[in-house]
Amino acid sequence: MKTNHFERFGVSSSVMIHASDVRKSYGSYEVLKGVNVSVPNGSVACIIGPSGSGKSTFLRCINHLEDINSGLLLVDGDFVGYRLKDDRLHELRASQICARRAEIGMVFQHFNLFPHMTVLENLMEAPVRVRGEKRAEARQHALELLRRVGLAEKASAYPRQLSGGQQQRVAIARALAMRPKVLLFDEPTSALDPELVGEVLSVMKDLARDGMTMVVVTHEIGFAREVADQLIFMDGGTVMEQGDPREMIANPKSPRTREFLAKVL
């Protein structure tokens, strides 16, 4: 059974992702040193920061690809990898974690499309096998999503036959095929040739306009300024500064933010 812990932890029910004092270490090396982030329903949060700042790790914690060592991390009012019972967090079985993960879409830097399946099969695989959708329905939905990312004519192509930008658009469509509550993007344009970045960003802008809740780890400051509702600057495993992107980019408060922005802008 799903339970919501909005009230118990004093989190507003309009918050999709709530992190307070999230800590994560690999051995003795602490990657996340108490991260506090709140992403409201239907909003877009962009996370920027130098490499090694823990931004990707934080993103991976949200869908439990990494487990956290301490702190509170709720997605839609629920723990991702655990179940709270009698004030104890019980680790969930693989099948239960999967059920929660199915509601959190993720787009990777290196696309990670399934190379042995056609584009259409990539989109239909999880809805049919995980959600138990009927093939005809899944196919219809998949074709609709491919039209939305402008790749309807590539349905029967294999990923290898597509350009990087096209592959990433398919990867976004694949995540959308599961009708997720929230989409996580891990540097979605970093592996692309510069002239292909635009087509992926434009698909992401459309999604934001349609009210999809998104957390985007990115180096595209322009995209963040235009689309994000909040900008989060991470450095050394903590959130150094967060707020309205236009304001933050114009007048960064922390010297570290100013330094970083000066380098990437």
Binding site: A99, R101, A102, V130, M178
Partner: peptide, 12 residues
């Protein structure tokens, strides 16, 4: 990456 992508789609 293949494993992670599949896990993120909720595959057991």
């Amino acid at each position: 990456g293949q494993t992670e992508a599949a896990l993120c789609l909720g595959m057991k």
